[in-house]
């Protein structure tokens, strides 16, 4: 009896087309680039930002002198132990820090409540550096990143220091209250 010879299936060339994946990847990349350029102020994670029901979008961070205002360490630790750990790590060399700033090399500097004069001097230097870069004086603002639980005396101390340094425009940093 003659055996029927089975034919071997033809070899199929399996190749994945990566072009849609690359397209998606580029779209995501563009989305994140656009979002990342919205605000470039340094954010201290130890600050528990307050929420505001009515606030506008931060479109341009140019001319912002950022001052972080911290809550008491025990209040900070009770809400977020990691924030307290980070705070102690960052400001270990500055005991009693209530105001935190970052210099031109992004090194954190802490000032205690008795160092408002030094804070004012820092803001003056920042203002002068910005003016030298050609930023208009009216565009130079104090960006106050106050902790929601920080006492008002600390925030007003930073505002006073800024006023003494010739900066009278204040921006209160906040997060949207409604998601």
């Amino acid at each position: 009896m003659a055996k029927k010879k089975s034919r071997e299936p033809e070899e199929v060339n399996c190749e994945g087309d990566p072009s849609p994946m690359i397209d998606c990847c580029f779209l995501l990349l563009m989305f994140f680039i656009v979002n990342a350029s919205q605000i470039t102020v340094s954010k201290d994670p130890s600050v528990n930002m307050p929420h505001a029901v009515s606030a506008s979008e931060m479109k341009d961070a140019n001319g912002c002198i950022v001052v972080n205002v911290f809550a008491d360490p025990d209040v900070m630790g009770a809400k977020n132990p990691k924030a307290l750990e980070k705070f102690n790590q960052t400001y270990a060399a500055y005991p009693g820090t209530v105001w935190g700033v970052a210099d031109a090399s992004q090194n954190s500097i802490g000032y205690n409540s008795g160092q408002s004069q030094q804070l004012s001097e820092f803001i003056t230097k920042q203002r002068e550096a910005m003016e030298a870069k050609g930023i208009k004086p009216e565009m130079i603002r104090l960006y106050l990143r106050g902790d929601a639980d920080a006492p008002w005396s600390r925030s007003s101390g930073a505002i006073r220091a800024a006023a003494a340094a010739g900066v009278s425009n204040i921006v209160f940093g906040s997060l949207p209250a409604e998601n």
Binding site: C25, L28, L29, F32, I33, N35, A36, Q38, I39, V41, K43, M49, A52, A55, S56, E57, M58, R141, Y143, R145, I159, A163, G166, S168, N169, I170, V171, F172, G173, S174, L175, P176
Partner: peptide, 22 residues
Amino acid sequence: LIYFLAATSLVSEKKLDISIPP
């Protein structure tokens, strides 16, 4: 893509502009 994913926070900070009399 990974860099921008890590660097971007989608909840961006808002602002309240106030000026104080000099």
